[in-house]
Design a protein around this nucleic acid. Structure first.
Length: 426
RNA sequence: GGAGAAAUACCCAAGCGGCUGAAGGGGUCGGUCUUGAAAACCGAUAGUAGAUGCAAGUCUAGCGAGGGUUCGAAUCCCUCUUUCUCCGCCA
């Protein structure tokens, strides 16, 4: 949620920034409604004050034997006068709220306007790997090495799902363990959140009300519960409705959860296999900071995500996203994109974002500074990392001519010292 | 899932229609005393959101959340949420 007063005082800037993000909104009407709302509110409150004053005088007047009925009548009259304005106020407030709540976050001013095509790679790690033999793609490797069973996944659940089998499950688990051990080393706090969340959590994170259709909602009567699409949604609600002390910040968390998303199911070659499923595993980092500390935290999270991929020895790049490609709730996003040789493309394995106060305003997450002044916190999140693209990237980038795949060194301790995955005989 | 009880400020807790935006403790902060500390004593400490104002301030809302009754609600009524106790079921 944006600061309504900021919108009012910086109308033109807000319009431009929203446009940069590709969002059309009638800011002028919003501001007019706000001014109107305040005028009505003022008159309603003055009337209320009068009513309160009269009501309070009743015991005194009674004691003195005055006419209490005249007061009752007067208050009723005032209340009746106020009714129309009160109704108007409720309607106006709702209208303003609905617009305000749907507005995306303002992108940072240094971001290029526009969509994906204006994303800018700002960092590369290693060169593209060169192979002297015919490459296999990740789906082929997963099957020949006996790591993933897509067919039985489809049988048991449907398209867009799979079983990790045997060493495949071990490799997946090794990745998660590797990420977890690195975050622990960095002093982040390990969290295992609930996977079924309530509406308020989706609202605070910014998924609702705009993106209610992208999540798996549980079929419960009279209750809105959904499967988390990312651990961010849970972690970023941890302090909802709370006021922390400034010295408690920053709070640094990470969590492992599967992520449940409805978006799967394209048939594009790019998204074969586990590239875009209904369920994938991810370790997610979330930081809560003071409102002047989020740029530092952003760098920290980007560096952490980068370091993980570097330690895995994979060729990747970091892209600074254009305004329109940043998520709805985010002011700034950098993607870590790993290279898939078979397709010669880069695929996102981590998205690091700064929401600034956008989520904190929605969830009333604040802190008090040493002067006792209350501020909104800043929230940031970043994958660290999602496995469903790292896994294919490892298979492809580490594949050998004989069809085997060398296991990245950092993962070996988590796989009982195993160094290579060999094709299984049919 | 069933049955009961509860939710008040940083914490505990009183209050059950007007004198309560809230008694009393505890905590925290400051002071007196002390070489220093403890104890004792004295004082301070009520958040938050919104409106208005240059400001001091004033006003509105607010005792789990949302509605209602009433001239007036922490207090009465309804709905919901959460917590606790007991029973059932179960990894």
């Amino acid at each position: 949620m944006l600061d309504i007063n900021y919108i009012l005082e910086n109308k033109e800037e807000v319009k431009t920034l929203l446009k940069n993000k590709g969002y059309e909104a009638d800011i002028d009407t919003l501001c007019e409604q706000l001014v109107q709302k305040r005028a009505i509110q003022r008159s309603v409150e003055l009337n209320k004050a009068e009513q309160n004053k009269l009501s309070k005088s009743v015991p005194q007047v009674k004691k003195e034997g005055g006419d209490v009925n005249a007061i009752f009548a007067k208050v009723k009259e005032l209340a009746a006068e106020n009714k129309a304005n009160e109704d108007k106020l409720v309607v106006l407030e709702k209208e303003i709220y609905d617009v305000l709540v749907a507005l995306p976050n303002l992108p940072d001013k240094d971001l290029l306007p526009g969509e994906k095509e204006n994303n800018k790679p700002i960092y590369y790690y290693k060169e593209k790997p060169i192979f002297s033999f015919k490459l296999k793609d990740h789906v082929t490797l997963e099957e020949s090495l006996g790591l993933i069973d897509y067919e039985r996944g489809a049988k048991v659940s449907g398209a867009g799902t799979w079983f990790y089998t045997g060493l495949g499950a071990q490799l997946e688990w090794a990745l998660l363990n590797f990420f977890i051990s690195e975050h622990l080393k960095d002093g982040f706090t390990f969290m295992l959140p609930p996977h079924i969340l309530n509406y308020e959590s989706g609202f605070t994170a910014g998924q609702f009300p705009k993106f209610e259709n992208d999540i798996f909602r549980l079929d419960l009567p009279e209750q809105f519960k959904f499967m988390l699409p990312t651990a961010e949604t849970a972690l970023v609600n941890y302090y909802r409705g709370e006021i922390l002390k400034e010295e408690e910040l920053p709070k640094k968390f990470f969590a492992y959860t599967p992520c449940y998303r409805k978006e799967a199911g394209t048939n594009r070659v790019e998204e074969r296999g586990m590239i875009r499923g209904y369920q994938f595993n991810k370790v997610e980092m979330v930081e809560y900071t003071a409102d002047n500390d989020s740029d530092r935290a952003f760098e920290e999270l980007v560096n952490k995500a980068k370091t993980l991929v570097e330690k895995l020895g994979l060729h990747f790049r970091v892209s600074k996203l254009a305004a329109g490609d940043c998520s709805h709730s985010m002011a700034r996003t950098y993607d870590i994109e790993v290279y898939l040789p078979s397709l010669d493309i880069y695929k996102e394995v981590s998205s690091v974002s700064n929401a600034r106060s956008y989520q904190a305003r929605r969830g009333m997450m604040r802190y008090k500074d040493s002067q006792g002044k209350v501020h909104y916190m800043h929230t940031l999140n970043g994958s660290g990392l999602a496995t469903s693209r790292i896994f294919p990237a490892i298979l492809e980038q580490y594949q050998n001519e004989d069809g085997s795949v060398t296991i990245p060194e950092v993962l070996r301790p988590f796989m009982g010292g195993l160094t290579v995955l060999k094709p299984i005989k049919k």
